[in-house]
Design a protein around this nucleic acid. Structure first.
Length: 185
DNA sequence: CGCAAGATTATT
DNA sequence: ATAATCTTGCGA
């Protein structure tokens, strides 16, 4: 039985820090199908990308803990929000143990509440939900407004209900297929 | 201090 | 394919 996107949600539990302490690729995959909550908004995560500072030339953290990227070196389960192209924001979640720079970019959301809406693209997500630099550095394992819920015991990963591709807008490390998308919506 | 590049999006 | 728009990081 494959969990259906948009179907009835069962008992939901906040995802704890231990979940984010794993390898960023695994976390990016396992985040698919889970519920991102921000204030009054709730949406199913349908697309993610993994970025890993130590061996990934495309990561903001590749060159070390710069002012912007240092949060990627910090605690797992913390938000990393940055501005891109002077007009959009992107929401990430820091992963892996302290000191191992990595983060998952949230690229796609199927909004369930307050209304049904497909948000395909990290900039659209932040623009619609109202996420900006003020939401950088939030511990989403304890925060009241921003967190992730697990909606099912069955993972889309175990059921191979996702696809891996090259990351969008990335010309470096193109051998890494670290963009993950839920197969059917 | 100047400058080039950038984890995007909407429009042509 | 390209404009919009501005922060970041690097080198001088």
């Amino acid at each position: 039985m494959v969990p259906q996107i948009g179907g009835i949600l069962g008992n939901m539990v906040r995802i704890e820090q231990g979940f984010f302490e794993n390898h960023v690729v695994e976390v990016a995959q396992e985040l698919l199908g889970k519920i991102l909550v921000f204030q009054q908004y709730q949406g199913i995560i349908i697309e993610t990308e993994a970025y890993r500072g130590m061996d990934d030339e495309a990561s903001h953290a590749f060159k070390g803990p710069t002012n912007r990227a240092r949060i990627m070196f910090g605690s797992p389960g913390v938000s990393y929000v940055y501005m891109i192209y002077g007009m959009y924001h992107c929401l990430n979640i820091v992963t892996e143990p302290l000191g191992q720079p990595s983060a998952v970019l949230i690229r796609g959301l199927k909004l369930l509440s307050p209304s049904s809406l497909l948000l395909d693209g990290p900039g659209k997500i932040c623009r619609t939900l109202g996420i900006s630099l003020t939401h950088n550095g939030i511990d989403i394992t304890t925060n009241d407004a921003l967190y992730v819920l697990d909606n099912d015991t069955t993972s889309l990963v175990a059921n191979q209900q996702f696809i891996a591709t090259k990351r969008i807008g990335i010309n470096k490390a193109t051998d890494k297929l670290w963009r993950f998308i839920v197969k059917e919506l």
